[in-house]
Design a protein around this nucleic acid. Sequence first.
DNA 1: TATTGTTATACTCTATAACTATA
DNA 2: TATAGTTATAGAGTATAACAATA
Lengths: 147, 147
Amino acid sequence: MKISDALLDDTELAARLRLAVTRLARRLRQQTAGEVSQSQVSALASVERLGPLTLGELAAVERVQPPSMTRIIAALEEAGLVERTVDERDRRIARVKTTVAGQRFLERSRSRKNAYLAARVRTMSVEDRAVLARAATLLEQLLEGEE
Amino acid sequence: MKISDALLDDTELAARLRLAVTRLARRLRQQTAGEVSQSQVSALASVERLGPLTLGELAAVERVQPPSMTRIIAALEEAGLVERTVDERDRRIARVKTTVAGQRFLERSRSRKNAYLAARVRTMSVEDRAVLARAATLLEQLLEGEE
DNA sequence: TATTGTTATACTCTATAACTATA
DNA sequence: TATAGTTATAGAGTATAACAATA
C-alpha cells in the first residue's frame, strides 16, 4: 500500500482526525478567555446562526442533553447575552435569541478569544489556510448531515 | 471583500475552525466507547508514538498538568495498557511504555472506536478526504509547533 | 397521558496547592 | 534546595432521574 493510499484510508484518516481534533479542542478549552465557557459560546453562536430556537432544538443542535442546555442558557441569560421568550400559544415552549450584547460578544470573540488559533493560522501559507477553510466546511457538513 | 478572501481571513477561519473542532470533539467524546476516556486514549497514543516517556514529558505533550497525567497513567496502568518503570539512576523519574495489550487496544480503537468518524468519512469524495488528511497534518503541526 | 423544560444529584475530568521521595 | 511525581481538594461541565407545568 502506498503512502498516498494510506493517507486516504477511512480508518486511518478518522483516527488521525480524532486525535488532532481532540487535542486541539483541549488546547482551546484551556484558552478559555473570560467567564464564558466553550459550550456557552458554541450555543450562543448557534442561536445567532440559526435564529430563535427552542431549548430542545438547541440541545439537539449542540448535541447535549436538555438539562445541560437549561444550564448553558441560564448562564448566557444571566450574562445578558441571550433573551428568552415564552411561546404564547404553547406556554411550555421557551425560545431563545441573541441580545445586542450577545452579538457584540460574538464579534469580540472572533477577534479576541480566537487569538490563539488566529495567530497560528497567520503563520501558514495561503494554500494551507485554504485547506483548513475547506476542512472546516467539511467538518460542519459532517456534523449537520447526521440522521 | 470577496467571499474567497473572507474564507481565508485569519480571524474568520480561526472562529470557524474553533467551532467545528469544538463541536466534533464534543460529539466524539459522547461516542466514548468503553471504559477508556478520550484523554487516556490520547495519552496512550502519544506513548506509542513517541516511545517510552517520563510522566512530565507526557504531561507537556498532552498539554495537561502533572497531577492529571498521574491520574491518566494510573488508569491506563490499572487497565494493563501501559507499564511503568523507575529510572535506575534517578529514582524520582518514572517512564511509561505501552504493553502488548495497550498496542492491541489502539489497533482496536482505530477500527472500532473511530467507527463514527470513519463511517462519515466513507461517504466523502476522494478529494474531500484528501483535504481532511492535509488538514489533520496541519492541525498536528499547529499544536507541535508551539514552544 | 404526552411533552417541554427544570431541579436534584452524581460522575468525570481537570486544575491548584501541599506533600513525599529522591537528588 | 531543587526536581519528579503524588495526594488532597475544589471547580467546571455534563449526564440521568425525578419533577413541574402545560397541552
